[in-house]
Amino acid sequence: MALMRYSEALRMAMAEEMERDPDVFICGEEVGQYQGTFRVTEGLMERFGPMRVVDTPISEIGIAGLATGAAMAGLRPIAEFMTWSFALSAMDQIINHAAKITYMSSGRITCPAVFRGPAGTGNQLSAQHSQSLESWYAHTPGLKVVLPYTPADAKGLLKTAIRDDSPVIFMEHAGLYANRGEVPEDPDFTVPFGEAVIRKPGTDVTIIGYSLMVRKCLTAAEALESEGISCEVIDLRTLTPLDMETILSSVARTHRVVVTQEEWRNVGIAAEIAARLADEAFDELDAPILRVGGADVPMPYARELERAAIPNEDHIIEAVRQVTR
């Protein structure tokens, strides 16, 4: 184990996988010479050379095509988007090509590409740079969607993503890059997809989150402890595949659920989970399922408005109070 930043854990994962498999390469804007916009790929071009750490023009369609085509031809690309907001340009390549080629060909060809980069809201970056879009991808069959919270998960899940034969959407919350945590140095350490983890056990209510929201869920849970409300906090880790088993077994104990997401609340993963719980755990529910999500507005710039638009601990606390009333 070593104490390191989330961003360093990601770098470690990529470096280890590049050592392990010569077919793994990185491409993206500023990933090489510039050392990565968030320093995630720092030093990798020097270590692996420009053919394996490829600086690209600001061409998101091209980057996504580069990764998709290279993956179809047998390589294991890691395409970095400078932010997931910019990846919107590349939607056709990701959704219509990478996600579908395996199915369209009945498995005759696969696309083992990883699309990764910083995601999330905050820092007064306003409407076009501050947003969470994971549900867009979780909505699409054929994509695996991964959002690690801890540095250890960042490493373990990224390694799993690189080794996976399906295209993976890997979203790193920019607000987590500087987070430190113990990370296994074992190059064989991986974290499997589809296994949520209970970050804090509790008995009265299940709070579900992922990525940066887990931190807010834990803070809320701590505050609620003092009110005598015992919260179980689940970190989903991957939205696709979704670990309903862990959610269902938790809800079977707590009977109350608050699902959180940083994304716009409308038509998001929380709604999906709520619907599945209504389907699969109807008889366990002892309160309405509440969602905590972002305000359904383009992210405003002004600090006060931004604060109101991003879901926080207080929103979670209030939702938990409501379902435990």
Partner: peptide
């Protein structure tokens, strides 16, 4: 044959990846 493509212009970015893999 890596396939037909239903999107106008769609195969061209893909070909960059395929070409890159061949060069790689």
């Amino acid at each position: 044959f890596l396939g037909g493509d239903g999107i106008v212009g769609g195969p061209v970015p893909v070909s960059v990846g395929v070409g890159f893999a061949l060069k790689y």
